[in-house]
């Protein structure tokens, strides 16, 4: 208690002390009802913001996660070019290759085995042919 308040109370000090000591207290039942009311009136917790949802970790890897694993954009560009070239060679046979490809498609029983066999002669020798 401040000195000012003590000086104000002077002779009434003991009476006020008794009054403070016998402060009216609410019942436990009333406090329980007030707590229930407080919870009932309480606003619901806010839903997470869109930014929060975006910040959440995703379950699987996305394309931009795979690019570094493949060696970066230059490597991906090379893979894409090779893929496109393969498709082009398969769909539109260039004139320079048409003789070779037509030869492979018209093999006869007398043609050499190694004409179209991709394995090298060394590989064949190792296999005992």
């Amino acid at each position: 208690m401040s000195e000012k308040r003590r000086a104000e109370e002077a002779g009434l000090g003991p009476w006020f002390e008794a009054g403070r000591a016998e402060a009216p207290a609410p019942s436990g039942d009333w406090l329980a009802r007030m707590e229930a009311m407080a919870l009932e009136e309480q606003p619901a917790a806010p839903m997470p913001e869109v930014a929060d949802l975006a910040a959440r970790p995703r379950r699987g890897p996305r394309l931009h996660d795979l690019i570094p694993a493949l060696g970066g954009w230059p490597a991906v560009a090379g893979l894409a070019a090779a893929c496109a070239a393969g498709v082009w060679l398969g769909a539109v046979t260039p004139a320079g290759l048409s003789g070779w490809t037509s030869g492979t498609t018209s093999l006869t029983a007398s043609d050499s085995y190694t004409t179209f066999e991709p394995a090298s002669g060394f590989d064949v020798a190792m296999l005992g042919y």
């Binding site: 007030m34 707590e35 407080a38 919870l39 309480q42 917790a45």
Partner: peptide, 12 residues
């Protein structure tokens, strides 16, 4: 902000 413990603490 919807914190239930705050409701209890303030009531008491």
């Amino acid at each position: 902000a919807g914190e239930p413990a705050a409701a209890r603490a303030l009531t008491l």
